[in-house]
Amino acid sequence: MLFVLGIGSTVGMGSCIVRVIRDRWVRAPNWALALSLAVLGFSVSIVYMTPGGQFVLNLVDFYGVSFTALILAIGELLAVGWVYGVKRFCADIEFMIGLKTGIYWRICWGLITPGLMLAVLIYTLIDLKPLTYKNVDYPHIAHVFGWCLSAIGLLQIPGWALYSICKQSKSAGLLNKLKAAAAPANTWGPLEQTMHEEYANQRRKFELQAKQRTNLQSAYDNLFG
């Protein structure tokens, strides 16, 4: 059962990584990228098979997965729910598959899920204790490595946000740069030309409606509109 569970998780994460690489950089065949990813993952994971592997795994899991993953997930939820917008996200779903998203999902994506994850994060940080393994303290250098590992993950959000802001027009003010950086690119949408034009019209309609609302009205409309 654990083997099947591991394979399922690996296929899901591996497919995501391969797709991002293909879409963004390399046009190599799927099998070549998947094989390269498998070899790389296997090579890195050999350390966990050594006598001290569990000691290292516990360190990586603590610093690289626990609260780091929670913070990244909360950031993703806030970005989709309140920067891109739950309403626009649901409109995209309807545009793609023709199904309206119920109010339950809107509230979950916009409020309940990020709120619960934030509560879990706060509890995790409050309950945070020095890392040990079988009552053995980790050396100082291990904690330094762990915090560096956490920083690599956590700095992705402000780092790429700053990169996106810096790419905007230099003549624009900071607020306009922030708005432009948070807005979808003009190429965002279906690849097929006719559908892309239809989607662009829908997007312009959303933007026009947003300009006519106050911040409070926009927040309400994002969930219930």
Rank of each mutant, 00 (worst) to 15 (best):
residue 114 P to D: 00
residue 118 L to A: 01
residue 62 F to N: 06
residue 51 P to W: 02
residue 125 L to F: 10
residue 53 G to M: 01
residue 40 L to F: 13
residue 39 V to M: 13
residue 122 I to K: 00
residue 130 P to D: 02
residue 69 A to Q: 04
residue 61 D to Y: 12
residue 60 V to Q: 13
residue 65 V to P: 01
residue 81 G to H: 06
residue 47 V to M: 12
residue 40 L to K: 00
residue 70 L to N: 08
residue 73 A to C: 05
residue 42 F to Q: 12
residue 129 K to C: 07
residue 41 G to Q: 02
residue 77 L to N: 06
residue 90 C to H: 15
residue 33 L to W: 01
residue 83 V to G: 04
residue 109 W to C: 07
residue 133 Y to C: 03
residue 52 G to W: 06
residue 88 R to N: 08
residue 55 F to N: 07
residue 80 V to F: 11
residue 40 L to V: 13
residue 58 N to L: 04
residue 104 Y to F: 11
residue 51 P to C: 04
residue 96 M to D: 08
residue 120 V to A: 13
residue 121 L to D: 00
residue 80 V to G: 00
residue 128 L to I: 06
residue 95 F to R: 06
residue 82 W to S: 11
residue 50 T to Y: 00
residue 114 P to T: 01
residue 114 P to H: 08
residue 94 E to G: 00
residue 83 V to I: 14
residue 42 F to C: 12
residue 50 T to H: 00
residue 83 V to K: 08
residue 85 G to A: 06
residue 68 T to P: 02
residue 123 Y to H: 12
residue 116 L to E: 02
residue 61 D to R: 13
residue 131 L to I: 05
residue 95 F to G: 05
residue 82 W to Q: 04
residue 121 L to Y: 11
residue 61 D to W: 11
residue 69 A to C: 02
residue 133 Y to Q: 04
residue 53 G to E: 05
residue 86 V to R: 12
residue 122 I to F: 04
residue 87 K to C: 08
residue 64 G to E: 08
residue 70 L to A: 11
residue 45 S to Y: 08
residue 48 Y to W: 08
residue 72 L to A: 11
residue 114 P to G: 02
residue 120 V to K: 05
residue 48 Y to D: 03
residue 54 Q to I: 09
residue 91 A to T: 07
residue 118 L to T: 01
residue 59 L to T: 05
residue 130 P to S: 03
residue 96 M to T: 09
residue 60 V to P: 03
residue 100 K to R: 15
residue 60 V to H: 15
residue 95 F to I: 03
residue 127 D to S: 15
residue 69 A to P: 00
residue 107 I to W: 06
residue 71 I to W: 09
residue 57 L to Q: 10
residue 82 W to E: 03
residue 59 L to Q: 04
residue 59 L to P: 01
residue 86 V to C: 13
residue 51 P to Q: 02
residue 47 V to N: 08
residue 92 D to A: 14
residue 85 G to K: 02
residue 80 V to H: 06
residue 124 T to I: 04
residue 33 L to G: 03
residue 118 L to V: 00
residue 80 V to C: 07
residue 89 F to C: 03
residue 38 A to W: 15
residue 52 G to P: 00
residue 97 I to R: 15
residue 64 G to W: 09
residue 115 G to S: 03
residue 71 I to P: 05
residue 37 L to A: 07
residue 98 G to D: 08
residue 98 G to I: 12
residue 67 F to H: 13
residue 35 L to A: 15
residue 94 E to T: 02
residue 42 F to W: 15
residue 76 E to N: 12
residue 78 L to T: 08
residue 91 A to Y: 10
residue 111 L to V: 09
residue 129 K to R: 14
residue 103 I to R: 15
residue 118 L to Y: 01
residue 62 F to T: 12
residue 49 M to C: 06
residue 88 R to W: 09
residue 116 L to R: 03
residue 56 V to S: 01
residue 79 A to V: 04
residue 109 W to A: 11
residue 51 P to F: 03
residue 120 V to D: 01
residue 126 I to G: 06
